[in-house]
Design a binder for these strands. Structure first.
Length: 830
RNA sequence: GGGCUCGUGGUCUAGGGGUUAUGAUGUCGCCUUCACAUGGCGAAGAUCGAGAGUUCGAUUCUCUCCGAGCCCA
């Protein structure tokens, strides 16, 4: 008997790793396969890869999502597109600042700014390396040579240039507005960065006195803010207080430099059933206060400063931290006999997402991207974008419905892109660098060819070199951008904006934005906003929004729950014969999970066909192995079986003398391949993979191979041609999901790697293709054929005969008369 | 409190106004059969979360409730 060309007895993790290493060993080969070649003449397909944020370990759910982005990248190459699958790393931001602060046990602002920035860069570099290793291990076919870092001068230049562009066209403005502020980290944050935490707070009832002597009780959790009270409000329908409306009411605490009383007015937002039904409105206790101040046209007070301490209007409490001032205020009120009641209760308070610090709303002069006016236009652009799955578009629409204020983009942090502005001494003119230059105004002066603009009208006044003498002492902006200001340029950057205009022309709108649903309101929304404000275009052709990777019980993985599963442990499971085991805290008890072999190919296969895109998915290594490693084993063995038979010289040309069963399986294969091709075109990974799996582990081995085995052993070249043609094309179509597996098989058997195929395989036998009469006829017999085989196996089993023993008395159905010869031979019918 | 998802054999999952409700895994039974026992063949296993409504007909559409998750206030 001939021996198989595929040496290994079965697919293994060590084999997978060997193939993977060989795959990346030659940079030129790698580049030929995966580098972006915009001049190849093919249609461009640029993927706006989510640049991961390096922070120790990479979340396994994100790794799973990325592997699916890779499936899309590879499937688009298979369809003949020129794919740019960039590898970017998001390195700006407060996370890395926190890491350095934690490592050195020193707050950022105690450092020299330049020194701190260097420390951040060094620290993040080590994380970046680890992340790239995982990316390669899971098989991402990114163009790593063109790696971009969002903290590189090249990337930051784009951010700064876009800012200047938007400032000039009026989409970015500077204004004094109430801002959400994190006093501990000392920076403004956006709406999207606020979350809520449940904490114990004291709700205090305070007695206030009106000018007519009436005493009323007001409940509040923020007594320290009485000094910033602008108005006392009751609901217009609340008859208990009608008589008080318009009266003046005395503040129950001493204040400095402001009136000691306020008016009682009505407002619809007051909840009559909360406390006494009377509300003190302070600048600013919460977002509602902001709205009331705006609607009633009141001038806000600055009660809290940038350090989170009360200002001088707080009189005796000035200079105290908010929490100390609160305690002191309660004590004071008690002494004065104005404290009616105190209740301790659970309340959800707004905190910053990163630092978990209670946030304050304070008045600050900041930079804003105007966005409320752009919503309708963005909606129009959305019509031209295809969402996968369509229902996940709703996350975006809901968020857009809630947008009521502009986007504050300036932050008082350091490891971010600098706002590229200098101010003239009189503060009336600003200096901005020329497009394409990266500047750091906190430590350098403007380039000579910078432009001087009027700060309010944005009118161009001249060139810096000519005007330097009349500007006085120039001050560089110290503030930086919100990191989303960087991230939301990613599609522009990877498509060639500014750096490669001729590519950008063809590549924008960017072909694909793949991402998780948890960052729809930030990354996706801000990107679309930018593309709209800058170019008035939709940002993408396709938006692909995947669900989140959850623990085996469907809960979010988190350190505190102890239910995390490390990505590397899954990818390395089985390497060197080492099994994997995981201790995961379940809802009731800690569960031990075990698996012998997983690896990248099995992991990818699992993600590709375990659930449709967009749904949250449960990650359980035990199940991944149980359900999908067998699929790989099966497919490998089909190929290994085939590999022992002669491979016809010309697999591309149909020999023309095929037996009916050969033509039948080719008819079935053509239908499968048609589904696969269409699914790859629609970015439908699930359907494509399911179709391949069903064919490759089902009808092909169970029915066709059983049928033609004896012909193959007899050296029948028609059967060999059919089988090899199918195996070869199958590997090509399957390569997006399991690139190393298919690479190995196709290279070993056919001297041509499946990963190099850049045209979807053509029909092997045109006479049985989808839509032909001959093909339909054969496909219609499939069920009957498979049922007959099943019945025959069953009958043998019932009669206690082994499958290769002859059997008599079975009748082949009339419709299958064409198959009489082969079925008789297959089952040893007598 | 509001919004959006999701609830289908033990477990995971497909589907969708009329189907014997898909597939996998697990369970059980049989089979060393010349690619594969990390396998093959077969069997059992689901009142499609609960209730009401629309309909000739609902697991599918609508509503209410229950449960899970995410997001927001």
């Amino acid at each position: 008997m001939p021996s198989p060309v595929l040496n290994d007895k079965r697919w293994s993790i060590d084999l997978e790793k060997r193939i993977q290493e060989a795959h990346t060993v030659d940079p030129q080969v790698y580049a030929r396969r995966y580098a972006f070649k915009p001049d190849s003449g093919k249609e461009l397909f640029v993927i706006d890869t989510p640049p991961p944020y390096p922070s120790g370990t990479w979340h396994i759910g994100a790794v799973a999502q990325y592997s699916m982005i890779d499936v899309i990248a590879r499937s688009q190459r298979l369809l003949g597109k020129e794919v740019f699958f960039p590898w970017g790393v998001d390195r700006n931001g407060i996370n890395i600042e926190f890491t350095v602060e934690k490592n050195t046990k020193r707050k950022m602002k105690t450092y020299d700014r330049a020194e701190f920035i260097d420390m951040c860069r060094e620290t993040i570099e080590t994380f970046t390396q680890a992340m790239r290793k995982t990316a390669k291990r899971v098989g991402l076919s990114c163009d790593y040579e063109r790696e971009y870092l969002t903290d590189s001068p090249e990337y930051r230049t784009v951010t700064q240039s876009i800012f200047i562009e938007l400032f000039k066209n009026g989409a970015i403005i500077e204004d004094l507005r109430p801002n959400i502020y994190d006093p501990v980290e000392g920076t403004t944050i956006a709406d999207a960065e606020v979350e809520r935490l449940s904490r114990k707070t004291r709700l205090v009832d305070i007695a206030w006195t009106c000018d007519d002597g009436t005493e009323i009780v007001i409940s509040t959790t923020r007594p320290e803010l009485i000094c910033a009270c602008g108005v006392v409000a009751v609901h217009p329908d609340d008859e208990r207080y009608t008589h008080l409306v318009g009266k003046t009411i005395e503040l129950p605490m001493p204040v400095e430099g402001r009136s000691t009383s306020v008016q009682v007015m009505t407002h619809n937002s007051v909840k009559s059933d909360f406390g006494s039904g009377v509300l003190m409105v302070c600048s600013f206790g919460d977002q509602n206060d902001v709205a009331v101040f705006r609607e009633l046209g009141l001038t806000p007070f600055q009660a809290i400063d940038l350090d989170g301490k009360l200002t001088e209007i707080a009189g005796p409490f000035a200079g105290m931290k908010v929490i100390d001032a609160r305690n002191a205020a309660i004590e004071y009120l008690e002494e004065q006999g104005k404290l009616v009641n105190v209740v301790e209760r659970e309340q959800e308070i707004p905190v910053s997402e990163r630092g978990k610090n209670p946030v304050e709303i304070i008045l600050l002069k900041e930079w804003y991207v105007r966005q409320t006016h752009a919503q309708d236009r963005i909606r129009e652009h959305l019509e031209d974008m295809e969402f996968h799955p369509p229902r996940n578009k709703q996350f975006l629409l809901d968020w857009m419905d809630n947008i009521s204020i502009d986007w504050p983009i300036s932050r008082r942090r350091w490891y971010h892109t600098e706002i590229p502005i200098w101010y003239s001494e009189d503060g009336e003119k600003i200096i901005v660098p020329p497009s394409g230059t990266y500047v750091q105004p906190w430590r350098e002066g403007p380039p000579q060819d910078s432009q001087v603009l009027d700060r309010t009208t944005r009118e161009l006044l001249g060139i810096f070199a000519d005007m330097e003498s009349e500007l006085g002492r120039i001050v560089g902006e110290e503030k930086v951008f919100d990191t989303w200001m960087d991230s939301s340029n990613s599609n522009l950057f990877v498509s060639g904006y500014l750096n490669h205009p001729e590519v950008f022309e063809r590549a924008f709108p960017t072909a694909l934005r793949p991402q998780g649903k948890e960052i729809v309101r930030t990354w996706l929304y801000y990107t679309l906003l930018k593309s709209n404000l800058l170019l008035d275009k939709p940002g993408f052709k396709h938006v692909w929004i995947d669900g989140l990777g959850m623990d085996p019980w469907g809960r979010k993985m988190s350190k505190s729950l102890g239910n995390g599963i490390d990505a590397d442990s899954v990818l390395e499971c089985g390497a060197g014969g080492r099994t994997g085991s995981w201790k995961v805290k379940g809802p009731d008890k800690t569960v031990s999970l075990r698996a012998n072999k997983i690896g990248s190919e099995c992991f990818r296969l699992w993600k590709a066909c375990d659930a449709q895109v967009g749904d949250d998915f449960h990650i359980n290594p035990e199940e991944i192995e149980k359900k999908y490693f067998g699929v790989l084993t099966k497919l490998f063995n089909v190929a290994r079986f085939a590999s022992q038979f002669e491979i016809p010289e010309n697999l591309d040309t149909n020999p023309g003398n095929l037996a009916v069963e050969d033509r039948w399986i080719l008819a079935e294969f053509d239908a499968t391949m048609d589904t696969v091709r269409q699914s790859w075109e629609k970015l439908d990974i699930y359907t494509a993979t399911q179709a391949l799996k069903t064919f490759g582990t089902g009808v092909l081995p169970s029915h066709y191979l059983e049928m033609v085995k004896s012909r193959l052993y007899d050296g029948d070249m028609s059967a060999a041609w059919t089988l090899h043609r199918i195996v070869r094309d199958f590997m090509s179509a399957f390569t997006p999901v399991c690139p190393f597996f298919t690479h190995h098989i196709s290279e070993t058997l056919y001297n041509r790697s499946a990963v190099d195929i850049d045209a979807f395989p053509e029909t092997a036998d045109a006479s049985v293709a989808l839509g032909t009469e001959g093909g339909d006829h054969l496909r219609n017999l499939s069920n009957l054929l498979q049922t007959f085989n099943g019945d025959t196996w069953n009958t043998k089993k019932e009669q206690g005969i082994s499958l290769n023993q002859p059997i008599s008395g079975l009748v082949i159905p009339e419709e299958l008369s064409e198959f009489t010869a082969i079925l008789t031979r297959m089952h040893h019918l007598e």
